[in-house]
């Protein structure tokens, strides 16, 4: 079985004026479908850059990126947008919900960009919100929700498009330890019960201990 994500010798260089900064210096990485992996590293280690490239938010400078066996290293903006919409879900440290939309509308957003009909999108969103345990708050705006509830809504938004992989960038970074644990448990359940592929970016050792596989980044390389 071929890997869901396969990175070969990925580099990323930022050029600012005359100075160059090598964020990634030849990363090789394989991710199987159904895996749950924590990418560990201190700040500046390149873990966020790696997630951005794997999540189709950014291009790599050199190297080869295969997703489901397809070379996606040199795709155009609109093709990347389509992949982000269909194959990937994001969970961010500070939730990144749209403040003007309520919980339900936030979860429906990826389906809207897919061009899905409102009624079926609503049905899917309600199901997911039920599953992550915030069904009672669907008409609440993000600022009326607690951090844990907001992150659950954000996870629902990541799940609603039925993606092949979920990227969680410091998903518990803004939460207290109790809610952190609950949110992590939710992600673990999603991985174990539904075989969801989950990549967690974190610098927190405790979080990484909860994941079956841990990859540590250091100075732009996989250590």
């Amino acid at each position: 079985m071929s890997a869901l994500i396969s990175l070969e010798n990925i580099t990323k260089t930022y050029v600012t004026g005359e100075s160059e900064f090598h964020a990634l210096k030849g990363v090789d990485f394989q991710l199987q479908s159904g895996e749950m992996v924590a990418i560990m590293g201190s700040s500046g280690s390149g873990k966020s850059t790696l997630m951005n490239i794997m999540g189709f938010l950014d291009h790599c400078t050199t190297g080869r990126y295969c997703f489901s066996g397809r070379d996606v290293s040199r795709l155009k903006d609109d093709e990347l947008a389509a992949i982000r919409n269909q194959k990937v879900g994001f969970v961010f440290q500070s939730f990144f919900l749209l403040p003007r939309l309520n919980a339900l509308q936030n979860v429906m957003l990826p389906l809207f960009y897919r061009g899905e009909e409102e009624s079926s999108a609503k049905l899917k969103a309600l199901n997911i919100l039920e599953k992550v345990g915030v069904r009672d708050f669907i008409t609440h705006k993000p600022n009326q929700l607690s951090g844990g509830q907001q992150q659950r809504v954000a996870i629902a938004r990541a799940l609603v498009g039925n993606p092949e992989v979920i990227f969680a960038d410091e998903p518990t970074g803004s939460l207290d330890s109790k809610t952190s644990h609950d949110v992590m448990q939710l992600l673990i359940d999603l991985n174990q019960q539904e075989q969801r592929t989950i990549v967690i970016i974190t610098h927190d050792k405790e979080i990484s201990f909860m994941c079956p596989r841990v990859v540590t980044m250091k100075d732009g390389c996989v250590a």
Partner: peptide, 16 residues
Amino acid sequence: RREIGIRLAVGARRVD
């Protein structure tokens, strides 16, 4: 800007 970023992350195309 952040809203635009979020929309792009969930799959909005530039034309959207």
